[in-house]
Amino acid sequence: MFSPHGPSLRELAVQALSSVEHGYDLLAPKFDHTPFRTPDGVLDATTDALRAFGPFDRGLDVCCGTGAGMRALKPLCRGRVTGIDFSSGMLAQARGAHPDAEWVQADVRALPFAEAFDLAVSFGAFGHLLPAERPAVFAGVHRALRPGGLFAFPLGAPPPVTSGWYWALLGFDLAMRVRNAVWRPPFVMYYRTWPLRATRDDLAAAGFTVTTVPLASLGRREDGSPRYRLVLARKAGKPA
């Protein structure tokens, strides 16, 4: 599951007993050697799907972590690309890997931008945001985009109840709820809190027009439905 360069079980335990911000500061130097980093296949599939909607000028990676999303963002954007995250440790890794990008430390629940970007993306970070925080995040992204701007992110289909993954993810979320009930500071990391229907509803409430496209290269489930969909949330207006 982890490479020899990844964190030890002890390091993961220390992270899990920290706050989200401090935990990722600690994990940052080894994060890219864990399965928590968004796989290149997901990043490349997102880039391929977005090419038909571009090219774009300026791009934003929301909850950028160590900067893996730049693999998807840079080929799509002609202008400057920016990553935003609240972990100084993760941003330090991102700066080292992509010195040509702009990096901003801030809380994504209060994005400090206004009509500055044409494309915003996010990968693998939504589990760190509670459902009640979605409206603030989506409102901030909407404000950060120029008229006609696009917010895109992949969402995986939930595993069927007969799958071992269904029960593993359910067990993880329950364990995390117990941990947060008895230990402070809380560590927010849930796998089952961003279903597609609720996510679409909150995006629409923030002012977006929402569609989805299947990421066919990532395969299909046994019932024929795609394993991943790319959510496309468009801000009203004519792109520059």
Rank of each mutant, 00 (worst) to 15 (best):
S3L: 14
H5L: 15
H5Q: 15
G6A: 07
S8F: 10
E11K: 04
V14R: 13
Q15I: 15
L17A: 15
H22R: 15
Y24H: 02
L26T: 10
L26P: 06
L27E: 13
L27A: 14
P29G: 09
P29C: 10
T34H: 06
P35H: 04
F36I: 12
P39H: 03
P39R: 03
D40P: 12
D40F: 13
G41L: 14
L43F: 03
A45L: 04
L50H: 06
F56S: 05
D61H: 06
G65E: 08
T66C: 06
T66A: 02
A68Y: 03
M70E: 09
R71P: 10
L73K: 03
G79Q: 01
V81I: 14
G83H: 01
G83A: 04
F86D: 08
S87F: 10
M90R: 02
Q93W: 07
A94N: 10
D100E: 15
E102K: 10
W103D: 10
Q105A: 14
A114Y: 13
F117A: 07
D118N: 06
A120D: 01
V121Y: 10
S122K: 04
S122F: 03
F123K: 04
F126A: 04
P131N: 10
E133L: 12
P135N: 12
V137L: 15
A139R: 15
R143G: 00
L145M: 04
R146M: 12
P147A: 06
P147W: 11
F153L: 03
P158W: 08
P158A: 13
P160D: 07
P160H: 09
T162K: 02
S163K: 05
S163L: 04
A168D: 11
A168L: 13
L169K: 00
F172K: 08
D173V: 13
R177S: 01
V178Q: 00
V182W: 11
W183R: 14
W183L: 09
W183G: 01
R184Y: 00
R192W: 08
R192H: 06
W194S: 15
T199M: 14
A204F: 02
A206W: 06
G207L: 12
F208L: 04
V210Y: 06
V210N: 06
A216D: 15
A216R: 08
S217A: 15
S225Q: 09
P226H: 06
L232R: 07
G237C: 12
A240I: 05
